[in-house]
Amino acid sequence: MNTHLKHALPAWTWFAGLTLVFVILYAPILSALVFSFSVDRFPSLDITRFSTKWYAQVFADARMLEALKNSLAIALSTALVATTLGFAAAYADFRFRFFGQRMVLALALLTPTVPIAVLSLAMLAFFSRIGLSGTVGSIIVAHVVVATPFAMAICRLRLEQLPREFETAAQNLGATPGQALRLIVLPHAAPAIGAAALIAFAVSLDEYAIAWFVGGLEQTVPVTVLNTLQGQVDPTIHVIGTLAFAATLSMVFAAQMLLLRSTKSHKNKEVSP
């Protein structure tokens, strides 16, 4: 900021606000981390001793492992399908002009504003009528609907940075549309596709409402957490939380790194011979 532009309040007040916000955001995450290693059942400031006994308990819990297996299978499938759908739609929106283009965009991007409780209810009703409720497949199908908008937005934003001529220039030099896509568009979009997959995976891994409504007896990790929330204090939630934070945070950061690096390298990349 230029020196002649002064702020309405001294700098420290704004920074205090920044600190406060980050405390609110990260305190729950840090506390889960700390208490997951405390031997005490009731989390409090005077921690008796640190241990990994709750971790051992979680990994010995067959129900939890089953939920974890479900969660991973669902998140993986969701990431795959959502990224494919999202990239295809982003590419279509980037490459072609067609009737109803804005509607498709609106449809995909307005989905996240539908309250998750309403969406879950609609999904449950729908899947029960077609006899799919209570299956892992129905959770995947629903999670794809929730995760695709994110995947599409990420891919679309990245494609926007690709000058439109590149693809036609490749075709002008003899590349078929398929070759131009593979040789010009995909290398450019690769980081975004990776990021989209990671975000879709994270969204699915973290989603509880639809999984709870639609999944029936097939529990995912967040659903077991939700069920535990209703009961008494259970330190194993801190363990699950810590593990989940570690997993999703690293995925989200990996996605952000991918996107940032690609934006930078676009300008100045030296290719060694």
Binding site: P163, E165, T168, A170, Q171, L173, G174, A175, P177, H266
Partner: peptide
């Protein structure tokens, strides 16, 4: 189709593949 024509174009912004 474009890719079967032999009429290469030198683009205004050059469109070199980055």
């Amino acid at each position: 189709p474009v890719w079967q024509r032999e009429t290469p174009l030198v683009w205004q912004n050059l469109a070199l593949f980055p």
